[in-house]
Design a protein around this nucleic acid. Structure first.
Length: 479
RNA sequence: GGUGAGGUAGCCAAGUGGUAAGGCCGGAGUCUGCAAAACUCCUAUACGCGGGUUCGAUUCCCGCCCUCACCUCCA
């Protein structure tokens, strides 16, 4: 059974099947590496990851390509501000992005091409477009795509009737028109190649039109086609990319190849924070580090970000992290119980091959959750069904073989959602004096000097540590 | 102004033409010197407003109110 998604192109839910019948070719617009990714960025990548995991655990391989935008206005500006060479600057943020992605249990893409690594392909694409009369070079050495030459322009974003020739957000916008506005034949035309400017410093490449750098939209066309072919199965990104980015990608690509570009489009809604748009000025732009500094784990964030449908704006709140933490704890308990009664290892529980081998195609008892997932990637629906199913199987006694199947069926859903129920718990080691106090309290407790024990507990609490008594011992926990 | 999405219990969030999943919170109990954890159980007459269609609408249609997003480089 194929996984379906809401396809922006047809505005309807479509089964996403590989054109070649073997491998799903999936391209995602990756991050612009000029700073840490915020939770909004991460949500999009996370849901793409859930989609890929769902497809793969259903038995279909995915060729997942996600680019790194390592040259554009922002990367150049910020690296200049920092006085760091562009390459070094973007490498650092790329590494940070990898760290965050890994922490969030996102599978690494099959390939992760960088824009600066594919200048030649981009120049070739421009040459093709000029040859075919879809692009023109300006006096200054920039190259623009002639939107009017591409009849289908606006199909994806449905803005054929829109006013797209002004180049301004609103008619009463008094902003002065950008200098290169005068270079274009039409305000709707967009840059394929940007002539070198002083601010660009040593960031430039030689081209048939002189020194310059590629325009933003171009890299995705060049790299997706280089890695996945002129036509591929699915292309994804945040909703904001529908126009102009994806619209322009289609125009550039199809004008050159005369073949359909992406067969389906997968867009993720934005998230809001505490009911407001996430923005720097509101001070509500969270990164993974911010979340962790508040005492939550990456999995808590992952749970929150998958707890709303991808086409729905998610209202992120700190409170929701608490809910996630507790819900995850319950899932972990259930997983432990299922793993134990099934007599399988924890490794097997997280091993995709073991899961595919040992779980029914429809996920057996968990079929309702699986159904939710493959039907337009309804992650909150799936989560709801998981809990409901868990509640129901509580009472039913099942034979050993059934238990095994049950555990792997559960594992299938958990794997698709990408939830690591057993993250390494990095326990902060308590300082010497804290440990001493805790030990003292334990001794006091043992000789039933409860007044003393409670006083010490209070003291430890004030120092920011809680004592959790166990059967025959105790643990210290920060916070 | 144009286009699109949405308004479901204290919070988050699915879903449906026949009176509505799930999670969190909350409450009770077991356990525990205390605290926590864990386990069990429980709770709420929640579907923005007004019309219409229908035997019946939260679900379809119309109008209104409100929120949010996009409209040239923001996932």
């Amino acid at each position: 059974m194929a996984v379906s998604l809401y396809d922006t192109l047809t505005r309807s839910v479509q089964e996403i099947r590989p054109e070649d019948g073997k491998t799903l070719r999936f391209y995602c617009c990756g991050p612009t590496v000029y700073g840490p990714a915020h939770i909004g960025n991460l949500r999009t990548f996370l849901l793409q990851d859930v989609f890929r995991r769902t497809v793969e655990i259903s038995g279909l391989p995915v060729n997942h390509v996600r680019n790194i935008t390592d040259v554009d206005d922002k990367t150049i500006r910020e690296s200049n501000n920092k006085g760091v060479p562009l390459k070094e600057f973007t490498r650092e943020w790329t590494e940070r992005f990898h760290r965050d992605s890994h922490a969030l249990n996102m599978l690494a893409p099959t390939a992760e091409p960088a824009a600066t690594g594919h200048i030649r392909q981009q120049i070739e694409l421009i040459e093709c477009l000029i040859d075919r009369g879809h692009a023109y070079a300006s006096k200054s050495g920039s190259v623009y795509f002639r939107v009017s030459s591409f009849e289908d322009y606006g199909r994806l974003s449905r803005l054929r009737e829109r006013e797209i020739t002004t180049g301004r957000a609103t008619p009463d916008d008094d902003e002065p028109i950008d200098a290169d506005e005068y270079e274009r034949d039409s305000g709707a035309d967009f840059a394929l190649w940007k002539a070198h400017k002083k601010e660009d410093g040593d960031v430039f490449w030689d081209s048939p039109w002189g020194r310059g750098r590629p325009g933003w939209h171009l890299e995705c066309s060049a790299m997706s086609m280089a890695f996945l072919g002129e036509t591929f199965d699915l292309h994804g990104g945040g909703v904001d990319l529908v126009f102009p980015h994806h619209e322009n990608e289609i125009a550039q690509s199809e004008a050159c190849t005369c073949k359909p570009f992406a067969r389906h489009w997968f867009h993720c809604a934005h998230l809001m924070v505490h009911g407001e748009k996430m923005s720097k000025s509101l001070g509500n732009l969270y990164t993974l580090d911010d979340i962790q500094a508040k005492g939550y784990g990456p999995m808590d964030l992952r749970y929150v970000l998958t707890s709303a449908h991808y086409r729905q704006q998610l209202n992120f709140t700190i409170d929701s992290l608490n809910a996630a933490k507790n819900a995850l704890k319950r899932l972990r308990k259930k997983a432990d119980a299922l793993i134990e009664t099934a007599g399988i290892t924890r490794e097997a529980f997280y091993d995709p091959e073991a899961i595919i081998k040992n779980s029914p195609e429809d996920a057996g008892v968990f079929r309702t959750a699986w159904q939710e997932l493959i039907d337009d990637l309804n992650t909150p629906g799936a989560l709801g069904e998981v809990f409901r199913t868990l509640g129901r199987i509580e009472k039913a006694s099942i034979d050993a073989d059934g238990n095994k199947q049950l555990a792997f069926s559960f594992a299938k859903i958990i794997h698709a959602l990408g939830l690591d129920l057993h993250p390494d718990q990095e326990k902060t080691e308590a300082p010497e004096e804290i440990r001493k106090l805790a030990e003292e309290r334990w001794q006091a407790k043992k000789r039933k000097d409860f007044a003393r024990a409670d006083a010490l507990r209070e003291e430890l609490n004030e120092a920011g540590w809680s004592v959790l008594d166990r059967k025959d011992g105790y643990e210290l926990e920060a916070g």
